[in-house]
């Protein structure tokens, strides 16, 4: 039953992703000019003339002399038939290689941020809900609002500034210069950890704040419900009661928005990582979009779309498992 549900959902995903890929490709093409324009402009401002011969050669090389829909078909067919995402104009390398370089780190960051957000916001949300209108609640809510309103990149800039002022270390990348090219070692991990943590923290804080508010609201909602009173009337202790019932119920909407949360983390990561110059997907995708490095940008966006779809499927499955009233996307009554 579960298996057939999953298979059905996966099959549904395919036309959806195809549609998305078309939209992605069209949107990337929309800004005027193309990769060549950026390339030429760059060369000119560096003091080199770009001759007509060079432009013609580049056009042919990047396939930019073909009509747009043909470029799209080439690309999508390459992905489907050979897993070939095309070549990046900027890097002169297969897109797959570039993505592979950065995807593991990105997934690690996003995953850790998700865990961080949950670990922080759930206890605080619970505290806030059970101690409503107390001093603690106001303090936490205040910090929450601040966190929600301060943009992640601003916080990142602030962190860079403060760290530089106090320690002279300028955070601009996941590793310091010495370890950048070194092979993986314990030292490299230790070098990376504080920067990794800072990145997760900054990305997480904005999302944490939002989640605390939602969780608090959900908790307050659930705390007033009858079954909580029943449990209390049975003599269940407050703490146990809290976690077994309202928390469990309040988590459910969080799971159902897992897909959105994850997508939000991936895109939120872009700007913060850009400020910190981290070696994650976000900054690379940003540059790819700006320079109209078509295949690289398109592939990134496609992967994000896949992640959102997969996240959505995952959250539906989880929901079915956790909430017995929902079985495979339908409410059972």
């Amino acid at each position: 039953m579960l298996l057939s549900y999953i298979v059905k959902r996966l099959l549904q995903m395919i036309p959806l992703l195809l549609c998305i890929s078309v939209i992605i490709f069209v949107v990337i093409q929309l800004p005027p000019g193309d990769y060549l324009t950026t390339y030429i402009r760059q060369k000119e401002s560096a003091g080199t003339q770009v001759g007509a011969d060079e432009i013609a050669a580049l056009k042919a090389r990047y396939g930019l002399d073909k009509p747009v829909y043909l470029q799209y078909v080439d690309w999508i067919w390459g992905i489907i038939s050979r897993g070939d995402f095309g070549n990046s104009f900027q890097w002169d390398m297969p897109v797959a290689v570039k993505i592979q370089e950065r995807l593991p780190m990105t997934l690690a960051v996003s995953f850790m941020t998700l865990i961080f957000v949950w670990l922080v916001s759930i206890p605080i949300g619970i505290y806030s809900a059970t101690h409503q209108y107390s001093v603690g609640d106001y303090i936490v809510s205040g910090i929450g609002f601040l966190g929600m309103s301060v943009p992640g990149f601003l916080l990142a800039i602030f962190v860079i500034y403060e760290v530089y002022n106090h320690t002279g270390i300028a955070i601009s990348g996941m590793f310091s210069y010495e370890y950048q090219m070194a092979p993986w070692s314990w030292g490299k991990v230790m070098d990376m950890l504080p920067r990794f943590a800072v990145l997760v923290l900054v990305i997480g804080i904005a999302n944490t704040a939002g989640m605390i508010r939602t969780f608090r609201a959900m908790m307050l909602d659930e705390l007033g419900k009858q079954y909580v009173t029943t449990a209390r009337a049975k003599g269940v202790g407050e703490k146990r009661l809290l976690f077994k019932y309202p928390v469990r119920m309040a988590i459910i909407p969080q799971i159902s928005t897992l897909a959105g949360t994850f997508a939000g983390l991936v895109s939120g990561e872009t700007i913060v990582s850009k400020v910190f110059n981290m070696e994650t997907c976000g900054p690379m995708m940003y540059t790819a979009l700006i320079t109209q490095d078509m295949y690289l940008a398109g592939s990134f966006l496609l992967i994000t779309a896949v992640m959102v779809c997969a996240g959505s499927l995952l959250s539906d499955i989880l929901l079915s498992l956790i909430d017995p009233r929902i079985r495979f996307g339908k409410v059972v009554e």
Binding site: K225, Q226, Y227, T229, T230, A231, R232, A233, K234, G235, K244, Y245, R248, M249, I252, I322, D323, P324, R325
Partner: peptide, 20 residues
């Protein structure tokens, strides 16, 4: 005492039970 000495039966059993 709650539950052990004094037990309660509530008005709306659907709401009084936890759905999950």
């Amino acid at each position: 005492i709650r539950g052990g000495d004094i037990g309660m039966i509530f008005q709306e059993p659907m709401k009084a039970f936890s759905p999950v």
